[in-house]
């Protein structure tokens, strides 16, 4: 028996919004430590890794490890049927071929349940090595989303150059070029507005704007985003999900032909 409850549907809606543009389907691996989803986008350029810890759920029971393949478009449709302040309970029997989403209004007077067929997904699991990154940038997630949106107008690719002075985002194409420089925040009044750079070595890498923009769909989940970069390895774009866990996106840098 699997049962996981959150007192508020909002967070689950935001999580689905953060993945559904990249992934059509995904396998939710459930164990007593929580729920994990790892999946590549259709073109195998980026990887999404979602971790939700069991101890942060309002109720969590997982008697046996369970892998539930879900159509994320359908799951998003079902979650649209929940009000933001509804309690959400996700339930499945062991070896079941369906999962049930139950929504309960705050006054307990409306209870709805939606059953969804599970899919048998033959997805590759990738082993992500522990990496000491040359540069780790923490910055406001809204600012990152804004920069990705603005620079995508100029080119398919964006160069991110990080030094200890700051981080520079650049794009150039037929229309012209754009550069946005952010300096490290000197005094931090509000932590969520800070730009903080931890640098071992400067890094310059090129990434596809399309994927970066897809990652910024997670912006409503967290005020800050963390970018971890090293030469010749995938960028990690991480959004923390309050005390529940995190969503990480991995994107391989573009290379010279």
């Amino acid at each position: 028996m699997f049962e996981a409850r959150l007192m508020n549907a909002t967070i689950l809606k935001k999580i689905l919004d953060a993945v559904k543009d990249l992934l059509n389907e995904g396998t939710f691996d459930c164990s007593d430590s929580g729920i994990q989803l790892q999946a590549m986008d259709n073109s195998h350029v980026s990887l999404v890794s979602l971790t939700l810890r069991s101890d942060s759920f309002d109720k969590f029971r997982c008697d046996r490890n369970l892998s539930m393949g879900m159509n994320l478009g359908t799951m998003a449709k079902i979650l649209k049927c929940a009000n933001n302040d509804d309690t959400v309970t996700i339930k499945a029997q062991d070896n079941a071929d369906t999962v049930t989403f139950m929504f309960e209004s705050q006054n307990h007077e409306k209870v709805s349940d939606y059953e969804m067929k599970l899919m048998n997904l033959d997805q590759e699991h990738l082993g992500i090595p522990d990496t000491d990154y040359s540069c780790v940038v923490r910055m406001p997630s809204m600012e990152f989303a804004r920069i990705c949106r603005d620079l995508a107008q100029f080119s398919e690719s964006m160069v991110i150059c990080c030094t200890k002075e700051g981080v520079k985002f650049s794009a150039s194409g037929d229309l012209g070029s754009a550069n946005v420089k952010l300096a490290q925040t000197s005094n931090v009044d509000k932590e969520e507005e800070a730009v903080i750079i931890e640098m071992q070595e400067p890094v310059t890498l090129t990434f596809a704007c399309r994927y970066l923009n897809a990652f910024t769909k997670a912006t409503p989940l967290c005020n800050q985003v963390q970018l971890s970069m090293s030469a010749d390895v995938p960028l990690v774009v991480e959004y923390r999900i309050s005390d529940l866990g995190h969503i990480r996106y991995y994107l391989a840098p573009k290379i010279e032909e």
């Binding site: 195998h44 590759e124 082993g127 995938p234 290379i255 032909e257």
Partner: peptide, 13 residues
Amino acid sequence: MTQPSITSFFNTR
């Protein structure tokens, strides 16, 4: 520039 697949960086488990 070319876009490599993420699978060329992470091993299949």
